[in-house]
Simulated assay, not measured.
Amino acid sequence: MQVIALIIIGAAAGFIATRAMKIETDIPTTIAIGVFGAIVGGLVLRFLITISGWMAGFVGAVLGAMALIWLWRTYGGRR
């Protein structure tokens, strides 16, 4: 069940992060960015999840996705 929640939250976070960072990606890439961002954000902001619940996890997922986009733009991706 948590894997499904990770995919749903990651997809939403990826969508918001790609729009906030003004990058055009296809749907699978957007979902992948969001899921990996959710993993990164979840690890970094783990203490907030225990304090304030799922909303902190969503914020962490968006921030993690934005950090992943920044890394992708800076060190990789298409130029």
Rank of each mutant, 00 (worst) to 15 (best):
L6W: 04
W70C: 02
F58S: 14
G14A: 06
G41Y: 00
G34V: 00
T25D: 05
R79H: 07
A32I: 06
V3P: 00
T74E: 12
G64Y: 03
G53K: 06
M55S: 15
P28G: 10
G57Q: 09
G34K: 00
I23W: 00
L68C: 06
I7V: 15
K22A: 09
V3R: 03
A17R: 02
T74Q: 12
K22D: 11
M1T: 05
M55W: 15
I39Q: 13
G10C: 03
G60S: 13
G10S: 07
G42M: 05
F47P: 03
R79Q: 08
A20I: 15
R19N: 15
I7T: 10
A12V: 14
G77W: 02
S52E: 12
A61M: 12
I8R: 02
I23A: 06
G14N: 04
R73L: 14
V62L: 13
M1I: 03
F15C: 10
G64P: 08
I9Y: 03
F15Q: 09
F47D: 13
T74H: 05
M66W: 00
A5W: 01
L43W: 08
I39P: 06
M66G: 01
R78W: 00
L71N: 09
G41D: 04
V35F: 11
I9P: 01
I27F: 12
L43H: 08
A5F: 02
D26R: 07
V59F: 14
L6T: 08
G57F: 07
G57N: 10
F58M: 15
M21G: 06
L48S: 08
F36L: 15
L48F: 14
E24H: 11
A20W: 13
D26C: 03
L45F: 15
G14D: 01
T50Q: 11
V35T: 10
A67N: 03
A17S: 14
I9D: 05
G34R: 00
A13K: 02
V59G: 13
G76F: 03
G76K: 06
I51G: 04
L71C: 13
T29K: 13
T74L: 10
R46Q: 13
L48K: 00
R46S: 14
G60F: 07
I49W: 09
L43G: 15
F36Q: 08
T29Y: 00
R19C: 09
R78I: 04
V40Y: 01
G60Y: 11
G77M: 03
T25V: 12
V40C: 07
G14C: 06
A20F: 13
T29G: 03
P28S: 09
I49G: 09
A12H: 02
L63S: 10
M21R: 15
T30G: 00
E24L: 06
G41R: 02
